[in-house]
Design a binder for these strands. Structure first.
Lengths: 200, 200
DNA sequence: GTCTATAGGAAGATAGAC
DNA sequence: GTCTATCTTCCTATAGAC
């Protein structure tokens, strides 16, 4: 068939694996299901990857990286801080609601990684990066709103990461939009109360 | 061998399954591993359970019920509200730290349940009960501290459930005690700020 | 590199003696 | 009810022709 580089093939299989996992879960993402999804013969698997673990490594790095895309909301300058906070959180939440399956897979893969000696570190590093991203995000929000945080930003970031993670997990289970939004707004109000106007 | 009732056998297998899952993860809890752990022959499995799903149903109900045990902290009457809140949260957190593997299994089983059509509802109902338990817990704390919540308790409960869930998940990954405690205390302070002395 | 065919084993479930 | 032996299916991985 069409001659492709091994890298292209690998990419193709990682993406097929992602689709299968999102659709059917990690447990059902067998090598057969993955090559089937990619439209490749079974044998193709093992001259692209030494083993299934190697593919999973690629899948995990891929999806965990992808979910770092933090949507920044363009707001008119002079928007009051509470409004900036709320709009930013709602933008984040819209992203979750638009891609629930991907986020569910993220949790599944994290649990999976914790059980595999060679992969546990990947999950650990990933949460470290989530934290860093959250710090950046909080600082960007403060800049945009023209305020300063009255609490250590790294503490806020950890607190927010945990709350949003729990909120997402809970919503993936009950899919109760109303309750989730109420909790999200409660968090937004809490955050907004932790800002002070910049003295300049 | 020793003659036992089918109920006893079932109980025995559910407990063996729990041990295997806590030790090795859900994916490695095969029927063979489970009966091996219980010291029973392979054939024993299928005159106790119609299928593996039936056993998993039992395991999920068992562990999700068990994790509802909310430790109430005995404190001297007259203890200030912030102290009551903090002590209660720390007691909860100590429980998590003492049984990390059980909690990790809880998350694994929840993810698993969401992928099985017959089990998704169990997870949903379970989170509903977590929420109820959290409401009860918050009301008990207010009673003990002699204060009232200035925010709707169901909103607080949802918010707290989500934060504590995320905190636990995050800690299971990075095992960073210091950061977790800082975040927990931030939450305690937030909660304490939402109380008002009872006018009596 | 690419594919077909198959090895080799482990999974859930059952048959049938006791 | 209890156990051994076995069936069937599906898994990951490899062998070897092209």
């Amino acid at each position: 068939m069409a001659r492709q580089s091994a890298d292209e093939r690998r990419e193709q299989l990682v993406e097929a694996a992602l689709r299968v996992m999102i659709r059917d879960g990690v447990a059902r993402a067998t090598t057969r299901a993955i090559v089937g999804e990619a439209g490749l013969p079974l044998g193709a698997f093992h001259y692209c990857f030494r083993s299934k673990q190697e593919l999973l490594h690629g899948v995990i790095e891929r999806i965990l990286l992808g979910s770092l895309a933090s949507p920044l909301v363009p707001l008119a300058p002079g928007t009051p801080a509470p409004e900036v906070v709320r709009a930013t959180l709602h933008a984040y939440w819209d992203h979750i609601r638009a891609h629930p399956d991907e986020h569910q897979l993220t949790y599944e893969l994290t649990q999976y990684a914790l059980r595999e000696p060679g992969l546990a570190d990947v999950a650990r590093r990933q949460y470290e990066r989530y934290l860093d991203a959250n710090v950046d995000h909080l600082e960007a929000v403060a800049r945009q709103a023209g305020v300063a945080w009255t609490t250590d930003v790294t503490v806020l970031a950890r607190f927010g990461l945990n709350f949003l993670d729990g909120l997402t997990l809970n919503w993936l289970i009950d899919r109760d939009d109303d309750r989730a939004l109420v909790a999200l707004d409660a968090y937004a109000a809490h955050l907004a109360a932790l800002t002070a106007p910049l003295a300049d």
